[in-house]
C-alpha cells in the first residue's frame, strides 16, 4: 500500500474539522433554543405559577394564562388532519405505485409532491375564501342535521373553527404521508406480492394483504411525520381556526392552537403574557421533540426488515 501524500492528508483534516464544527453548531443551536425558551417562560412560572398555566382559562388582561386550550386545539386539529389524510394518502400511494400506468403514476406523483411546495399562507387564503364558506353553508349544516346528536357535530356554526383547520391541515400533510407510503409500498418485494397472488387472491386482496398490511410500520412512520408537520403548522391554521382560546367538543367551534396562539399574540404581548407565550412555545417544542424520538424509535423497531 502506498502512503497518501501529505497535502491530501491536510485537506482531509481541514475538511473533517469543518464538518465537525458544523455538527457541533447544530447541537448548540438546539441547546440554545431550549435555553432561550426556558429563559423566556421562567417569569411566567414564577409570577402566576404552574396551576394557572395548567388551567383552562386563557385571558391575559385578567392574568389567566392557562395553555390547555391551545394544547387541546393543537392535538385535536392535528389528529383530525391525520384521520382525514391517512386513508387518502394510502389510497393515493397504492394507486401511484401499484395501479396507475407508469407514466400516469409519475405525473400524478409529481403533482402530489407539488402540493408540498405551496406556501401555507396560500392554503390559508384558499381555506378562508373557499373552504370556510363551503363548510358554513353546506357541510356543517348537513352534519349538524344528520349527526347533531353527537357532541362533535353540535353547536353554532361559524365556518372558521376546528373542522376547517383539520381539513386544511389534512391537505397540507397529504403529500408527506403519500410520499412515505409510496416509498414503503415500492419497497415491498415482488416475491411477497407474488406469494399472495399464488394463493389465489384477487388483485385487491393482494394489495391489502401483500402491500398495505405488510407496510404497517412504514405507514405509521408516515403518519407520525405528517402529524409532526401538522402540530407545528402556523400560518394556515391561524387564518382558519377562529383564534378563540376555548375547549369545546364541537368541531364547528373556533379554537386556537399553540402555534397559532404564539403567532397571533406575540406582537402585542408584554411581560407575563409574553413569558406565557414562551411556555407555549416550549411545550410545543417538547411535544414535537417527543414525537420525533418516538418516530425514530418506531422506525428502528418496526423497520421494514427484509
Amino acid at each position: 500500500m502506498k502512503d497518501i501524500p501529505v497535502e491530501k492528508n491536510l485537506v482531509d483534516l481541514f475538511f473533517r474539522r469543518t464538518l465537525y464544527g458544523f455538527a457541533v453548531l447544530a447541537f448548540l443551536l438546539l441547546g440554545g433554543l431550549f435555553v432561550f425558551l426556558i429563559d423566556l417562560g421562567l417569569p411566567a412560572f414564577k409570577e402566576v405559577g404552574l396551576g394557572n398555566l395548567m388551567s383552562l382559562e386563557w385571558n391575559p388582561p385578567l392574568k389567566s394564562f392557562g395553555i390547555l386550550p391551545f394544547i387541546y386545539g393543537t392535538l385535536v386539529s392535528s389528529l383530525l388532519a391525520l384521520v382525514f389524510s391517512t386513508p387518502i394518502s394510502v389510497a393515493a400511494a397504492l394507486f401511484l405505485t401499484e395501479i396507475a400506468p407508469r407514466r400516469i403514476g409519475a405525473v400524478f406523483g409529481f403533482l402530489v409532491e407539488m402540493l408540498a411546495a405551496i406556501p401555507s399562507v396560500v392554503y390559508g387564503l384558499w381555506g378562508l375564501f373557499v373552504v370556510i364558506p363551503w363548510l358554513r353553508t353546506s357541510v356543517e349544516p348537513f352534519l349538524r342535521k344528520s349527526l347533531g346528536f353527537i357532541p362533535l357535530f353540535s353547536g353554532p356554526i361559524y365556518g372558521v373553527g376546528m373542522l376547517a383547520a383539520g381539513l386544511i391541515l389534512a391537505i397540507m400533510i397529504t403529500p408527506t404521508i403519500t410520499a412515505i407510503c409510496k416509498e414503503v409500498f415500492g419497497a415491498v418485494p415482488r416475491p411477497l406480492k407474488e406469494g399472495v397472488l399464488a394463493l389465489g387472491s384477487t388483485r385487491s386482496e393482494m394489495l391489502w394483504i401483500g402491500v398495505v398490511s405488510s407496510s404497517r410500520s412504514g405507514i405509521l412512520g408516515g403518519m407520525i411525520l405528517g402529524l409532526s408537520r401538522a402540530l407545528g403548522e402556523t400560518m394556515a391554521v391561524t387564518m382558519v381556526i377562529g383564534n378563540t382560546a376555548e375547549i369545546s367538543m364541537s368541531l364547528f367551534a373556533p379554537h386556537q392552537t399553540m402555534a397559532s396562539a404564539v403567532a397571533s399574540e406575540v406582537a402585542e404581548a408584554t411581560g407575563v403574557h409574553l413569558s406565557a407565550l414562551g411556555v407555549v412555545g416550549l411545550v410545543l417544542l417538547l411535544i414535537s421533540g417527543c414525537l420525533f424520538l418516538f418516530l425514530r424509535w418506531s422506525l428502528r423497531k418496526g423497520g421494514y426488515s427484509r
Binding site: P191, L192, A198, G200, R216
Partner: peptide, 21 residues
C-alpha cells in the same frame, strides 16, 4: 387466473411468509 391459482399452489425460491401475520 385467480381460480387457477387456488388449484395450483406455489412455493418460491426464497421463503416468503407474510411479515404482518
Amino acid at each position: 387466473p385467480v381460480r387457477i391459482r387456488r388449484r395450483i399452489g406455489m412455493v418460491f425460491q426464497k421463503p416468503n411468509p407474510f411479515p404482518s401475520m
